[in-house]
Design a binder for these strands. Structure first.
Lengths: 193, 193
DNA sequence: AACTTAGCGGAGGGGTGCCTCCGGTTGCAA
DNA sequence: TTGCAACCGGAGGCACCCCTCCGCTAAGTT
C-alpha cells in the first residue's frame, strides 16, 4: 500500500471487532452501488437495507452523509492513483492517454460524489492532491516531449475529460469518438487524423 | 415566430383568463429559477410559494412535474433555435463557433432538465429536432468548406460542448480555455495554436 | 349590476427520509 | 465458560414533500 500518499490514514476509522468490520465494509460497498445508481441523494435507509444492517449501524459508522461519501471516494481515488505506475513504461503520449482512459472509468461514476465533497473538505483536498501527484508528472512529461500543447494545464485536461464522460452515451462508440476529438485538441503539434 | 418549427403549439396550453395567465407565467418563471438553483428535484411547493400562488394552482396548470419541465424547456429551446439566423452572415467556422457559444449558455442551465425529459418524451424529441434543424446546417456548411473534421457528427459536437459546460468552473477563464482545446480538436485541417 | 363559472388556494392524508435512543445480542479476552 | 463492553437494529418522532379535494373569489359576460 506504499505510494498512495497519506490518504490511508483516513481508513483508520475502520472498526476493530470482526462483525463490525463486516458491517462497515458491507455499508461502503452498498453505498458505492447506491450512489452510482441513484446519485448522491440515495436514501441512507436504502443503503442500510442493501447492506443488510440496521439504520443505527450505518449512523454509528458514518455520523453524517458526508463521511459515507468520503469512505466510498477515498479508495476509488487510491486505485486510480496506483494505476499511474502501470503506465510508466509507455511513451509519453501513450502513457498519458492510457491513464486518462483509466480516469474515465473513475470519473464516470464518481463525478457527482466529487462535486458534493468539493466544498471545504479536507479529504477532498487530499484526494485531489493524490490525483495530481499521479497524473501531473505524466502530463508534464508529455509536454516536455512536445506532444501535448504547452498552454493546457493538467486541471484543464481533467475537466475536459470529466465533462465529456459525465454524459450517458446511448451508443457505446460515440463516447470514444468524442473523447478522440478532445484528445486531438490536446495533442501537439496537431496531426492530421 | 415563423421558423421555430411546430413547437409553438405546445404553448397552446396557456390559459385564457387574465389572472390565470399571470399565474401561469409566474409559475414558469419561478420554476425556471428553482430548477436552476436546486436542480430537477426542486420542491413544487417551493415553486408555488415563489410564484405567489397556491399549490393547487400549480397542479391545475401542470398536473405532473414533467409538464412543468416541458414548459420551462420549450421556450429556452426556441430562443436557441432562433439565434441561429443571427450567425448566417459569418464565415462557416465563425458561424458555427458563435452558435456553439450560444449553445453553451443554453446547456449550462438546461442540461439537467434535458436529461430528465430525455426518456420517451414527445416534447423532448421535438426540441431535439428543433436544435438540430438550427445547428446541423451550420455544421455541414463548415464541413463542406473543409474547416471541420469530416468524421465528427453534429451530435458528437453537442455532447462534447454540453459535457464540458456542465461543470462549474471556479476561474472564469478556464472554461473558455477548455472549450478552446475541444474546438481545436474539432477544427480541420488542424492548425497550430 | 348581476350572474356564472373558470379559477383560486390551502388544509390535510399519505408517504418517505433523517436521525436518536435504548433494550437486546454477540465477539472476544481471560 | 463466563462476563462485559462493544455492537446491533429498528421503533418512533420530526420534517418535508406530493397530490387531492372543495368551499370561496373574482373575471368576463350580458
Amino acid at each position: 500500500m506504499a505510494g498512495t500518499g497519506e490518504l490511508g490514514e483516513y481508513l483508520a476509522r475502520r472498526p476493530k471487532r470482526a462483525d463490525a468490520q463486516r458491517n462497515y465494509d458491507a455499508l461502503v460497498a452498498a453505498a458505492r452501488e447506491a450512489f452510482a445508481e441513484a446519485g448522491v441523494n440515495a436514501s441512507l435507509e436504502e443503503i442500510a437495507r442493501r447492506a443488510g444492517v440496521g439504520i443505527g449501524t450505518l449512523y454509528r459508522n458514518f455520523p453524517s452523509r458526508r463521511e459515507l461519501f468520503e469512505a466510498v471516494y477515498v479508495d476509488e481515488v487510491q486505485a486510480l492513483s496506483r494505476s499511474a505506475a502501470d503506465m510508466a513504461h509507455l511513451p509519453p503520449w501513450d502513457a498519458l492517454v492510457a491513464w486518462l482512459n483509466r480516469f474515465v472509468a473513475y470519473a464516470a461514476t464518481k463525478r457527482a460524489l466529487a462535486e458534493e465533497l468539493a466544498h471545504d473538505s479536507e479529504v477532498f483536498r487530499r484526494c485531489r492532491a493524490e490525483i495530481y501527484a499521479a497524473g501531473q508528472p505524466m502530463m508534464r512529461r508529455a509536454q516536455e516531449a512536445g506532444v501535448v500543447r504547452p498552454d493546457a494545464t493538467f486541471d484543464d485536461v481533467l475537466r475536459l475529460i470529466s465533462g465529456i464522460v459525465a454524459f450517458q452515451f446511448p451508443e457505446p462508440g460515440q463516447r470514444d469518438r468524442v473523447l478522440a476529438i478532445a484528445l486531438d485538441g490536446l495533442r501537439y503539434p496537431p496531426t492530421l487524423a
